[in-house]
Design a protein around this nucleic acid. Sequence first.
DNA 1: TGAATTTGACCGAT
DNA 2: ATCGGTCAAATTCA
Length: 351
Amino acid sequence: MDCEQKTLITELTQGKELAELLRNNLNSISSLDTRQFLVEQILSSYEKALFLLNWGGCAVEIKPTISTLESPNYYANSSPKSDVSDQDCKDQCQKDVYKKRKTEPRWTEQVKVCSGTGLEGPLEDGYNWRKYGQKDILGANFPRGYYRCTHRHSQGCLATKQVQKSDQDPTIFEVTYRGRHTCLQASRLAVALSPASLKNDKSKQDKDSCQVEQPEQKPKPLKELSFNFREEVKSQDSNNVEDIFPLFSFPDAYIGNGNEENDIFKESMMENDFLSSLSSAFISPATSDSSCFAMTPCHMNSLGIDHNVRTPESNLAPTSATNSPNGYWDISLDNVDFDTNFPLDNPELCT
DNA sequence: TGAATTTGACCGAT
DNA sequence: ATCGGTCAAATTCA
């Protein structure tokens, strides 16, 4: 086993132990700071592990994030030339941003809309999105809507998604996600767990129904909690391991801030053993990092819901979780549960 | 009145 | 030159 793998296992093991520690702390009266510290440590471990998987090597470096790339200071500080005009710098920044965005993790989720429920149109995925464009796509019957995270400017979150009604089945929306959410959308959970929202969960989609350009996503309850209103069909479309191991982050509400809603959350977690399911839930690429309530394909299977997996670039060619052209996807969802037996030393995973 | 959406223009990739 | 993705001014909404 080489140094790379050892470091990787060390980081993942550390992350697991920290997570267990955090779980124990949830039952105690430990301070918020303690729990936040644990969360930060967990995130740090996973970030390092992801870096190793992405770039290899033993030395863990800090690669610039998108937000830092887009920061004017980043380029100002990184450019050795002082005589570069502002315009040149701006142009270069723009080019690099485009390049970087092209390398963002990307995956597609298909959302089947159940007619007659009053919930036509893709339900929100728990994040707040703002529409920034719409395009007619060559060869497609329906336009494609472009959405970015509402917190793009306030928190520098660069997650985006594209929503397009399927040509084959207009009841299916193909949602392509790009980039991870780096924002903290605490309202997602707080709202979701409020008794009122749970009571009135089915709601307010009427305005947007049956429009491709519809999925207006203002802060609303987590629909993953009522996933029976839709089927999710997910697919992988990325060579980026972050799709498989999306950054695991807790919104504020997960961490706890002492308010009533959070108490409800904690009770809910204890009652339903939510934490025990997080390890599998958070690997759901379609819901990315903090969508801990999302159903993974495994869950869907367990519920007897069919799912197909396909990639846009493969032109709808059916594939499976274990049939990916890229090596990372060979880590099938069935195998990934952050079990201590996770086969990191399997050479096949590194091809 | 601020936030969200619409839509034509612009830009980079191919 | 064309296409997909993004920007940003205008418009609409709450």
